[in-house]
């Protein structure tokens, strides 16, 4: 039997339909944190599984049949192809439907969309990744890309904060980075009631005391809830970061992902096309940006 993807690609009118979701199978569901599961997908079409490539920071439109479609960052690195890893928080209609699916169920994927991080611009510089909460989801792609292409970057620093140890996304793999000498991996929690945490305790900006940062040769990729932006941006500006060296990943309502539906517009930019990665300079020049 032909899959709809294949039918569509042979239809004279709809060949090249950018709205066409390609079917992918859920190969693993990992319950990372309550209501934040990691879904690993593999395209049903083998050729697509081999050929799909993205830039860290890009996203896909994920369809849960019968429920809807939504933008989700690709959390896996393009240096580790064949599967896509998505870290999804359960919040509403479509995410709830996704949480009802089991391994081997099928979802739809189209993309990758958005600009992604400006890798060639960052190349040769230091890289600072600063995330709070769910903000680790898009940054994880950049993190592994940088570690897998280590020679492209100078010093790499990761600062990541969560409320408690059990709220930390990718906890096992990140704590395993703490001992590595090719990255300064700084992890912190606001509180550690269980007393088992062996890293930093305290608010995220406190981690700056443990990092050596040269603002003029560093690109900072920041992602997190509004409070994280507020405090991290403040610190970066105090340190003297050029405004176009601060990279932010922004979230907006999205229905198409390709600059048609109008939902994601900020001022006069479409987050789905010109974003979701914006520099701080872009941000202060666009109304409603932050």
């Amino acid at each position: 039997m032909l899959l709809a993807d294949e039918v569509a690609s042979s239809h004279p009118v709809l060949a090249d339909n950018p709205y066409q979701p390609h079917m992918a199978r859920i190969v693993r569901i990992y319950k990372m944190v309550d209501n934040n599961h990691l879904f690993t997908l593999r395209f049903m079409e083998d050729s697509l599984a081999h050929s799909f490539r993205h830039t860290p920071g890009q996203f896909i439109m994920l369809s849960v049949p019968g429920a809807g479609e939504m933008p989700i960052s690709i959390s896996s690195s393009p240096s580790r192809p064949e599967v896509l890893e998505l870290c999804v928080r359960r919040v509403g209609r479509v995410t709830n439907a996704l949480y009802r699916l089991r391994t081997n169920d099928v979802v739809g994927v189209r993309g990758p969309y958005g600009n992604g991080y400006p890798i060639s611009e960052i190349t040769g510089n230091d890289l600072l990744l600063a995330a709070g909460g769910l903000g680790m989801a898009p940054l994880r792609s950049l993190l592994w890309y940088a570690l897998d292409h280590r020679d492209k970057f100078n010093n790499i620093t990761l600062m990541y904060g969560a409320k408690r140890p059990e709220d930390m996304l990718f906890r096992e793999e990140l704590t395993a980075l703490v001992d590595r000498t090719d990255i300064n991996c700084l992890l912190t929690v606001d509180a550690d009631p269980g007393g088992t945490w062996r890293n930093h305790v305290g608010l995220l900006p406190g981690l700056f005391d443990h990092a050596k940062i040269d603002p003029l040769r560093t690109y900072a990729a920041v992602c997190g809830p509004p409070v994280v932006y507020k405090f991290i941006l403040q610190r970066l500006l105090e340190l003297g970061f050029p405004k176009n060296h601060i990279l932010m990943s922004l979230e907006r309502r999205m229905k198409c992902g390709i600059g048609k539906c109008g939902h994601c517009s900020i001022g006069y930019k479409y987050t789905c096309l010109q974003g979701p990665i914006f520099t701080y300079w872009d941000a202060i020049n666009l109304p409603e940006m932050i």
Partner: peptide
Amino acid sequence: SIFRYRPGEGFVPVTDGLD
């Protein structure tokens, strides 16, 4: 309507009336 979804087939584009 831009797609019809069928389990086992996936998302089939709706082309009614387009021509």
